[in-house]
Computed example of a mutant assay.
Amino acid sequence: MNVNELEALPAHELHDRAVRYAVRHGDLGFLWDLLKVIPAAEAAAGHETDADLTKVSALLSDAIAAGEGELGEALRPVYLEYLREHPEA
Rank of each mutant, 00 (worst) to 15 (best):
D62Q: 14
L9Q: 13
A41G: 09
H25V: 11
R17P: 00
A44T: 11
W32F: 10
A43H: 11
R20G: 03
Y82H: 12
L28E: 12
E81C: 07
L9M: 14
I64G: 06
A40R: 11
E81D: 15
T54F: 01
P39H: 06
L31F: 02
L53K: 13
E81N: 15
L60V: 09
H25T: 15
W32C: 04
E68M: 12
E85H: 14
E48P: 02
L60S: 02
Y82M: 12
H86V: 10
L59Y: 01
D27R: 12
Y21A: 04
L35C: 10
V19F: 08
L80E: 09
A8L: 01
D33L: 12
D50S: 05
G46K: 15
E13H: 09
D62G: 07
A45L: 08
E5S: 10
L9V: 00
A40Q: 13
V78T: 14
V78W: 05
T49R: 15
W32H: 14
R17N: 04
V37T: 11
Y21W: 15
R20S: 14
L80H: 07
L75D: 04
A65V: 04
G46W: 12
G46S: 13
V37A: 07
D50W: 02
L83K: 07
P39M: 05
A65L: 13
H25Q: 14
G26D: 10
Y79V: 06
Y21N: 10
L35H: 06
A45E: 11
L6Q: 03
V78R: 12
K36R: 15
P77A: 08
L31I: 02
A18T: 01
E13I: 13
V23N: 13
A89H: 10
L31Y: 03
R84P: 03
R20N: 11
P87Q: 10
A8I: 00
A43R: 15
G46R: 15
D33W: 07
A66C: 14
L60D: 02
L75T: 03
I64H: 11
A18G: 00
E42Y: 03
Y21K: 08
E68G: 03
D27W: 07
G46E: 14
E42H: 07
M1A: 12
P10M: 04
A63L: 05
G26I: 06
E70Y: 01
M1C: 00
E70M: 07
V19N: 11
G26V: 05
N4W: 03
V3R: 14
R84M: 13
L75G: 01
A41Q: 06
E42W: 02
D52F: 07
L53Q: 13
G72W: 05
A63I: 03
P39W: 06
E13W: 02
E48C: 04
H25D: 09
A11W: 04
K36I: 05
L80F: 04
R24P: 00
A63R: 08
G72N: 09
E88W: 10
L71P: 03
T49P: 01
R20T: 13
V3W: 01
M1D: 05
A51Q: 08
S61Y: 09
A11G: 02
D33P: 00
A45F: 04
F30K: 06
D33A: 15
K55N: 12
H15L: 04
P77V: 05
A74N: 10
H47D: 10
R76V: 01
E73G: 04
E42M: 14
H15C: 05
R20M: 03
E70K: 15
E85C: 09
L34N: 04
L53M: 14
M1L: 08
